[in-house]
């Protein structure tokens, strides 16, 4: 089966004042893959993902998603088109119950309240439906955030540093969960933990100083000289 391109970004450049955070980036996501975005701190990962999800307006360049131009669409409409985003620092409705958190995600795509238990069960939070989300442990809040992302029934799920702050055991469970999402859902993973990246990703894009340094399979990336020197500070 020929690979179908789900998302296609061309010539993205973004400046904050005098600083160019992202410079002329071309970026493709293939339907059904798990694609990791890595790079040193300040390489422009978060800016690039913010441009894709619509949290930042596009200054120059264009983005196509599922064959349609979404360059000018505001964030909430991109979510409706199927791009879900989970925050780098967990962002749940701390004052509302776990069930209501999931319910709000389901409601957003017009789903019924009856789907809440299944959405929570998918990440193993079924026992905590009535707890206030703000009282959950950090790891559980991460899971809730994932549940909300999945409850949107996205075509593309963007995970922004999902394992940051999790224990080793939690990371293992998280990996299993994410591994089971493809190929129904395309996953874009921004991650520092190389073990997680190498286990999950089928392709990796490396950013450095706002530009794409390399794209390829984990094996190819590991062998890439330029990547090695960027990471080793060469």
């Amino acid at each position: 089966m020929a690979a179908v391109t789900l998302l296609e970004a061309r010539g993205l450049t973004h400046r904050f004042g005098g600083l160019t955070a992202v410079r002329g980036v071309d970026f493709d996501l293939t339907q059904g893959e798990c694609h990791a975005l890595i790079g040193p701190n300040g390489a422009g990962k978060t800016t690039l993902v913010s441009l894709l999800s619509g949290r930042l307006p596009v200054q120059t360049g264009a983005i196509r998603f599922a064959g349609q131009d979404i360059t000018r669409l505001p964030a909430h409409q991109r979510v409706r088109r199927g791009i879900a985003y989970t925050f780098q620092i967990t962002s749940v409705y701390a004052g509302l119950s776990v069930a209501e958190n999931a319910g709000l995600a389901i409601q957003s795509r017009g789903g019924a309240e009856a789907e809440v238990p299944a959405a929570l069960a998918r990440v193993g939070l079924e026992g905590m439906a009535e707890a206030r989300a703000g009282t959950l442990s950090y790891g559980h809040q991460r899971l809730l955030e994932l549940a909300m992302g999945l409850a949107l029934h996205p075509r593309l799920l963007i995970l922004d540093e999902p394992t940051q702050g999790l224990s080793a055991g939690e990371i293992g469970r998280f990996k299993d969960l994410v591994a089971g999402l493809t190929p129904e859902i395309t996953v874009l993973l921004i991650e520092h933990n190389m073990e997680v990246v190498m286990d999950l990703a089928r392709r990796i894009t490396v950013l450095n100083f706002g530009e794409v340094l390399a794209t390829g399979t984990p094996k190819a990336i590991r062998a890439n000289r330029a990547v090695q020197s960027a990471y080793l500070g060469g």
């Binding site: 999800s53 979510v79 925050f87 962002s91 749940v92 701390a94 709000l104 795509r109 949107l152």
Partner: peptide, 11 residues
Amino acid sequence: ENEERSRMLGY
């Protein structure tokens, strides 16, 4: 409760 979260849920 959380404006940014709501936006990123598609509201």
